[in-house]
Design a protein around this nucleic acid. Structure first.
Lengths: 233, 233
DNA sequence: CAAATAGTGTCTTTAAGACAATATCCT
DNA sequence: AGGATATTGTCTTAAAGACACTATTTG
């Protein structure tokens, strides 16, 4: 009955892992499926690539359609998952997933319920429910990638709102890297990069102690940095 | 009952970029296609993923089937290419390619003609012919990845034969990075990594000057290195 | 012995890391 | 004032880079 499989192509899905730090913990954006298949299960926003859809455009389109995000955000291709058993609930079905990683500040992101999602929500990494398919594995890979990229690139700047303080940014790094960073040295290196414009305002994040000055990223200067000019390298 | 749309999924190909340094220049392994489609064109070794084939196993299988390589080599997933126009010669055809990157020492690799390849050959980057599909773009991405990974990982060790000299390894780095490295400092850092066993033999690569001592990689020690312990970081 | 290549030791410069001192805000 | 948080400056240590010097081979 399934010998048609020989010449049938696997379906191609695009799944997106949006990562953000909220209240001192890493979160990812999940939706509760409203499709027939695995209805009610929590999963990454994703969709099947149609025959005439461009792969690179699909990720942002998935975000728009499934979770109502129409803003431009930082997205990069993460990895393609094609294990035979990645859908353990239905062995005959074959979907290969091209996963994308997005790094955002959740407060910038306006999420809307689409009728296609029962529920959309930022979920803390420590409180992830059982996820559909191999989405847990995809998330693990995404967090791993973030951790590495924070060290040898400047994607970390996408984690903070337009106006932010140095301790705020540092805390985001600490959360995702899983280690404390020396506040003094972090600050020194950050400012030496020369991509921050100081605003004449201050903000007290913790509601105690000295408020920290607010900065804004100078994206023109950021774009001019070489590959090797990062916070850590 | 199968949904008709499932038959309209794009085909999934796996293409492999094997990179090696030969005579002081970066090379990639190419084959001349003997398939009906684009017969005679130079292309990366690749194949279509069957419905019941595991993605991760496909890359090494492609190498075996298309260019007769049955050895275990270092392979990692590179990127998935899914532009609508990646096959410019036949707009109706849709193939999404999952590209893999392999880093090898070509002298270790035994290539065999399969009846499915007219010709198989290591081709210098500077002498690449026009390639099928978007394979030039895939190669560019591969070389870029190698360049980056040499700086923050230890994949460089896969470039040299079992027994090699420090200047040999350094030259491979220089070629792929596109810049000269200070011999003294390269050597110092390399030996400080502590993953080389010195053999009691010497070898004169250039047939002139003082012969350099031969080393062997201690893979046990190499495996124990942390992510952050690399030649450059 | 001269030319070529490899390796060693040293010095300078730069970055990383630790830490004490000072500043600012809140209650 | 006292606690909490932030920034500044300094000191120490480690790594990176430059370079002169020595060693070993070939012709």
């Amino acid at each position: 009955m399934q010998n048609k499989n020989e010449y049938q192509n696997p379906a191609l899905a695009v799944d997106v892992v949006l990562v953000s730090v909220i209240n001192g913990e890493a979160h990812v954006l999940l939706r509760q499926r409203n499709e027939e298949r695995l209805k009610g299960a929590w999963a990454l926003p994703g969709g099947i690539l149609a025959f005439n859809e461009d792969l690179n455009k699909k990720a942002s389109q998935v975000l728009k359609e499934k979770v109502g995000i129409s803003q431009e955000i930082y997205l990069e291709q993460l990895h393609t998952f094609g294990a035979l058993d990645r859908d353990k609930t239905k062995p005959g079905v074959r979907v290969v997933s091209v996963a994308y990683l997005g790094i955002v500040d959740s407060s910038k992101i306006k999420v809307e319920h689409s009728d296609n999602s029962t529920e959309v929500s930022w979920v803390a990494i420590s409180k992830l429910p059982g996820l559909a398919f191999d989405h847990q594995e995809i998330i693990n890979k995404a967090l791993d990638r973030v951790k590495n990229k924070l060290r040898y690139s400047n994607v970390g700047f996408f984690l903070v709102p337009e106006e932010f303080t140095v301790p705020e940014l540092r805390e985001n790094f600490e959360v995702l890297l899983g280690e404390k960073l020396n506040p003094t040295n972090f600050r020194t290196k950050l400012l030496k990069l020369g991509v921050l414009d100081e605003l004449n305002k201050k903000k007290s994040i913790k509601k105690k102690g000295q408020p920290a000055p607010l900065y804004k990223i100078n994206f023109k200067k950021l774009a001019k940095l070489k590959n090797t000019e990062t916070l850590f390298n």
